[in-house]
Nucleic acid binder design. Structure first.
Lengths: 129, 129
DNA sequence: GCTATAATTCAACTATGGTTGAACTATCGC
DNA sequence: GCGATAGTTCAACCATAGTTGAATTATAGC
């Protein structure tokens, strides 16, 4: 059986990586707080009732994914402020929208199934088994 | 420190559940094929080089998440056709777009940090590095 | 120098969940 | 009935990754 490769969004792998980063409730909560303007480790921990090292870990994951930027306080360098990367957020929205766009849904390709099945000849598209 | 609870999208939990389902490369590939019109277990396995029981498992996860519908062949009930649930896909896009909308990003709330720090009322900005 | 603070890093533990192969169910053709 | 086919379910294995607490780094204040 030979099937030509079906087209996939070029950034599908990156989307998968992003989704893996986002598919974590606490990271979603952190992102939610970052969007609301909360930006230091201590206050994130205060809101989410999490140990600072856990916050640090999840922020590190988000930062490696390029979604979050880091900045130290100019007056007291012990404080670290995290912020969303707007460009990455745009890219994320674009990748997600491109992949899950309803317009991408195509009618069934009757490759499998018995002869003379539910699918009529008029709706069949290319390829043989 | 007292912090009033920050508003979160009402469907945040459902979004988290969906993301957990989507954050799996093989499931993304399956969804990609379903969008392209491939809809039976055997051909999915052919494209992805996966055992049918694995396909079955991942399709089950997608189905429990409401993203995929199931239908048996009218002529030969042994064949099963999977299809995307357009309504669920719309809801997914809506939930994702609502959460990650760039418009939701707010400037930093200077709750933490030293007194008289970098953040002044007049110089608040969306911090970038 | 010393102590306190903000945050990170590290190693160990743990749990969720993907993978595997076999057994099983259901249907079709004979 | 029988055997073949499409797909599912099951139990076991295993790897990834979140969690935990302690140690560590870096900075500020004295």
């Amino acid at each position: 059986m030979r099937h030509e490769p079906l087209a996939a969004p070029t950034n599908m792998q990156q989307l998968a990586d992003w989704l893996k980063v986002l598919a974590e409730p606490r990271r979603l909560q952190i992102l939610n707080l970052l969007m609301a303007g909360v930006q230091c480790n201590c206050e994130l921990g205060d809101h989410l009732d999490m140990a600072p090292n856990l916050i640090s870990h999840h922020l590190s994951v988000l930062r490696k994914a390029g979604l979050v930027d880091i900045e130290r306080d100019a007056v007291d360098a012990r404080w670290v402020y995290y912020s969303l990367n707007p460009a990455a957020l745009d890219a994320l929205n674009a990748a997600f929208g491109a992949f899950f766009a309803p317009a991408r849904i195509q009618p069934r390709r009757a490759v499998c199934g018995p002869q003379g099945s539910v699918i009529h000849a008029a709706t069949i598209r290319v390829t043989r088994h």
